[in-house]
């Protein structure tokens, strides 16, 4: 007896997008021709990449257990970047410009450029630069960074449907990659990509951030919307076949469950270890749902996800 489960074949594939250029060593993600991680039946020329998040200022909201591995590097982006790459083995670094938020330091676009430069000087891997979030400050900061660091193939995080034009323009002008963020909504993700494409942004320079819900905090919404985006992409939708980035660390470490001690200990255990596992249990399902680039916070979470990914792409290929 031989059972045959018909392998799934698809008309579409995920686009390949290269992160980093100029003084960066470029790395390419995407290219998958089947359901995520279904390496047994489809070609996956690129494996998912893992980034670590660092910040321009000491991030006041980071909980002690995730601060620990960054001791001495918090608020020192160059030191943190080196540690992320050289000690912890990150493929990519994400510099989160927390300090430029009007309520968290109100640092100027010039200071943001300075922090970005420090990271660029410290490491040679591709760099994601995340602004302070929505509104005009986000544009002021990222437009300046994009202009001053032109040609570095930065991943700019992020443009939204209401306000994408400035970042679209600098992505085109200065050779960067743009993250298109949509609020867990396939249709908005698609609309935004159409708008970006209309604004002459090459789709080979776009990543989708479908917005990550952390474990216990909406993970299921991200999980399902990503699966649907991937199905649409594999079905041939060229406005949804961009690689997907997920900000795992930021969401996982927000959870109440990583901050409290919790009783009984028989099911809460060690708080630090629980935090790491919370991050792992957010990351792996998202990989399975189609993430191509995961941004993590804790190096131990990165190490475990790395072990899984490496094993997978050796064993499965």
């Amino acid at each position: 007896m031989t059972l045959t489960v018909k392998p799934k074949t698809w008309p579409g594939a995920i686009r390949e997008v290269t992160l980093g250029a100029g003084s960066r060593q470029g790395l390419t993600i995407g290219g998958g021709k089947g359901l995520p991680l279904h390496t047994f039946e489809a070609a996956f020329p690129r494996r998912p990449l893992l980034a670590l998040e660092i910040t321009d200022v000491d991030p006041p909201r980071w909980v002690d257990t995730v601060r620990a591995p960054w001791d001495g590097a918090l608020g020192r982006p160059d030191v943190a970047a080196k540690r992320a790459v050289e000690e912890y083995g990150a493929d990519v670094v994400m510099l989160h410009l927390v300090g430029t938020h009007p309520d968290r330091g109100d640092r100027s676009p010039a200071e943001a450029v300075e922090a970005t430069r420090q990271v660029l000087d410290a490491v040679g891997v591709p760099l994601i630069v995340k602004g302070p979030g929505g509104g005009s400050r986000q544009n002021d900061v990222l437009v300046r960074v994009a202009e001053e660091c032109r040609g570095e193939g930065l991943v700019l995080h992020s443009a939204a449907q209401e306000d994408y034009k400035s970042l679209a323009a600098v992505t085109v002008a200065y050779g960067h990659v743009l993250v298109a963020e949509s609020p867990i909504d396939l249709n908005i993700a698609k609309q935004l990509n159409i708008l970006l494409s209309d604004a002459n942004v090459d789709m080979d320079r776009v990543l989708i951030d479908p917005m990550t819900g952390g474990l216990g905090y909406g993970l299921e919404y991200s999980y399902s919307v990503m699966q649907r985006i991937r199905l649409a992409a594999l079905g041939g939708d060229r406005m949804l076949n961009a690689p997907v980035i997920c900000l795992v660390g930021e969401e996982a470490w927000k959870a109440k469950e990583v901050k409290v001690d919790g009783t009984p200990a028989a099911v809460w255990g060690d708080r630090a270890r629980r935090g790491v596992q919370w991050e792992i249990a957010t990351a792996l399902p998202l990989l399975e749902a189609g993430a191509d680039l995961l941004v993590l916070r804790h190096p131990e979470a990165l190490a475990e996800v790395r072990r899984v990914v490496d094993g997978w792409f050796v064993a499965g290929s």
Partner: peptide, 20 residues
């Protein structure tokens, strides 16, 4: 392998098995 295994697993199960 330590109590910390349980909360993440239960929570993940809750997420995945919630009726959309």
């Amino acid at each position: 392998s330590g109590g910390e295994t349980w909360m993440p697993l239960w929570t993940l199960r809750q997420n995945i098995y919630t009726d959309p």
